[in-house]
Amino acid sequence: MTSSTKKKLRRNIEGYLYVLPVILGVLIFTAFPVIYAFVCSFFETPLKPIGEGFDHFVGLGNYFKSFSDAYYSRKFFTSLGVTFLYAATYIPISLVLSFLLAVFLNKQVKGMRFFRVLYYLPVLLPAVCTGMLWNRITDPYYGVITKALQNIGINWSWFELPQTSMVSFEFISLFTLGGNMILWLAQLKNVPKSLYESATLDGAGKFRQLVSITVPICTPMILYNVIMSIIGVMQTYSQVLTLTGSKGSGLEDSLLFYVFNIYDNRVTHFGYACALSFILFAIIGALTAVVMKTSKWVYYTEEG
């Protein structure tokens, strides 16, 4: 063995030693469960200890069940509908609102930093606390907010009617706008001042500048935000669970998010729950791919 190959080997070993934890982590805590779940998704089985075998092989039966079996398909499509509705309304609304908020907060006014901190604060409120708080104050009989709204003539049913549940949930989620706002602010700082100056010289108004300078430069951020939001929103679960408490997925399944299906089945129909999670994986992958494929509108600056 020559000294150079020896050196190379040494370098490789050294490098792998550094990244060993993450390799092990990926193998044990990601690859193993994902493969195990994939195998299980072909069996009809309740949750069983590893190594005890499964009840019986059903091939793609668990995957088809979501479409062919009336009971499962109803739950499946309701949950898809709820999740997509939430994604399709909440993602754009929160993007636009947080963007406007960031543009507003980007002004050079004294004490602005302090306000940014204040607006970011609700993001830090633990999800369980948010849930518990809103659960109590929107109670139809004892809730403070319900009463306050009634006093000014608004009779909002919050989670007592299927029709109002989703809107109420989105409203409560909007309190975490601060998270996206911070991202926008960081991006807004990156817009070269010179662009605005030349635009002003060309006589472009504030609004015009916003549309033709700020937004295009922020498009990579929009793309990033949209993709991350899709991944996050498709997995909505604990927010709803802690908010609705005993009502679980809401009245008439108005808040039956996709992950509820997986969790409800994970003990008694483990194989089916696994199949459901792979369908979710496929959906997320497909959505991300669509967003990426149609991302011609994204404007990359030279360094990007």
């Binding site: 993450v22 990926v26 044990i28 805590f29 990601t30 193993f32 469960p33 994902v34 195990y36 779940a37 299980c40 949750l47 069983k48 200890p49 590893i50 190594g51 991944i231 498709m234 997995q235 679960y237 992950v259 997986i262 969790y263 994970r266 483990f270 729950a273 696994c274 999670s277 792979f278 979710l280 994986f281 997320i284 992958g285 991300t288």
Partner: peptide, 23 residues
């Protein structure tokens, strides 16, 4: 590969990990 794991929804592994942790 490490980056790709970011794309995997957490629920996929959350449930089967139960059996592993049981072991």
């Amino acid at each position: 590969i490490v980056l790709a794991t970011m794309m995997i929804p957490a629920v996929i592994s959350l449930v089967p990990l139960y059996t592993l942790y049981a072991r």
